Amino acid sequence: MQVYDPELGRVISAAFTTFHGNLDQAGAFLARQVHDWLEAMRGEIPPEEVYKHPLSYPMLLFPWWVEKALRQAPDFAWQTDLVYSTVNGYYAIRMIDNLMDGHATIELQILPALNFFYTEFQRPYQRYFAHEHPFWDHFTATWYASAEVTIRDARAETIDRDHFVQVTARKTCAVKIPVAAVCYRYERPDLIPPWAQLVDLFGCWHQMYNDLFDWRQDLERETHTYFLSEAERRKKPAESVTDWVIREGFAWGIETLAAWMAQLQAMSDELGSPDALAYLKTREAMLSERQKIVVAGLQSAAQLLTLLRQAAVSSSNGHT
């Protein structure tokens, strides 16, 4: 299912050509190590395709939507710089996240590569905004906020709705930087707050989507999530997390996603972004299809559990 404009696809390809070229120039040994790390994460999938996967967080789409809402045809070179910056910022964040959550492979050995990622994340903006431009205040505040919420979330052992909305779901807040850049470049700083609200709310939807469909893996890995925290709060005393998910948990998660999606679509409409709205409707349809599959599986699991418990009771009665 294609959710990326073909022109944006060409922008992404151009940005990755620049990325690989600059990385190779930064140092041959450094480049080999970073390329190995990236390949280990994505497998044989081309890097640009990872970002364009329909279930991936749409970090490259947000600034594209903003510019398309302001002008008919986005500036190719400008968007290429935004994608290039965002990719470097993402790799820096991903490297740190892998180290913090215990999923690291060679990250510790190539940690100095952060020098490259941080520099290339910031450098493109220096071509467009003088050092006294208000964009840089926004850049600094957002970048620091990204670090703040990441550290806070890593320390959380139980997550309530407020923590989820204000902290967990905002770990992707750095995407507000290219969003603000577009608004400032076209002299529409008044649009930064409503677009930032869309980013924040989509962060909630996206993270809840992952928490809902990955709950079993998270439970096995003892990963603290909002969904599993709610399971502990809402399940009956003798009920397991699995029982709660079957009884009401999955339905609760779907209802939560539906409420946020309705808000997101209304906000996109108010922002005058048919592209964002079309994307959200696509994600909504994909969720609906996946929901049907999971519900059928949960119904079968519920029936099996009922039969097993009945058999256990019968066996117990037979021995009395």
Results as ranks from 00 to 15, higher is better:
I192M: 08
W136I: 12
L61V: 03
W260Y: 09
L257W: 00
R233W: 08
K68Y: 02
R247P: 04
H206A: 04
L23S: 04
T105G: 11
R233N: 14
W143Y: 14
T158K: 10
Q33K: 10
P193S: 10
Q122A: 14
E220D: 07
L23Q: 03
H319V: 11
E232H: 06
G249Y: 00
L70I: 13
Q299P: 06
A28K: 15
A169E: 02
Q217V: 08
E157N: 14
D211W: 00
A174Y: 01
Q207A: 05
L38Y: 04
N317F: 08
G102D: 07
L61W: 00
F135C: 08
D218H: 04
A147I: 13
G253P: 00
L219Y: 07
A259R: 10
S288K: 13
E289R: 14
N88P: 05
R247C: 06
P274Q: 14
G43K: 08
A266L: 05
L70S: 12
W143H: 13
P58V: 06
Q72V: 12
C204M: 10
F16N: 05
A104Q: 11
R32K: 15
N98T: 03
A130N: 12
Q263L: 07
T256G: 07
S240T: 15
G297C: 04
I106D: 12
F213L: 04
D211I: 01
W260F: 05
A92I: 03
A231F: 01
Y125S: 09
A28W: 08
Q263I: 02
H103V: 09
T150H: 07
L228P: 01
G253E: 01
E289W: 08
L307P: 07
D243P: 08
E248W: 09
Q109M: 09
L271A: 06
T150K: 07
V179T: 01
Y279I: 03
E289P: 04
I254T: 02
A285M: 10
L307K: 13
R94N: 12
E239T: 11
L308N: 12
P46I: 13
H103Q: 15
P74W: 03
H20G: 05
L108T: 13
F250R: 02
G272T: 09
H163S: 11
L277G: 02
Q207Y: 02
S288L: 13
P194R: 12
I96V: 11
V83P: 01
L55A: 08
V165S: 01
I293R: 11
P124K: 05
A276R: 02
K235A: 02
W143L: 15
G21C: 12
A73F: 13
F213A: 00
A14P: 02
R247D: 08
V245A: 06
A258K: 06
V313M: 15
A69L: 10
D269R: 15
W143G: 05
F213P: 00
M267V: 07
Y84R: 06
T242A: 11
Q207L: 08
S13N: 09
T256N: 05
H163D: 12
S316N: 15
F129P: 04
D101H: 12
A285F: 09
F117T: 00
G21Y: 10
E132S: 13
A296Q: 11
K68I: 01
F16E: 06
R188A: 11
M261D: 01
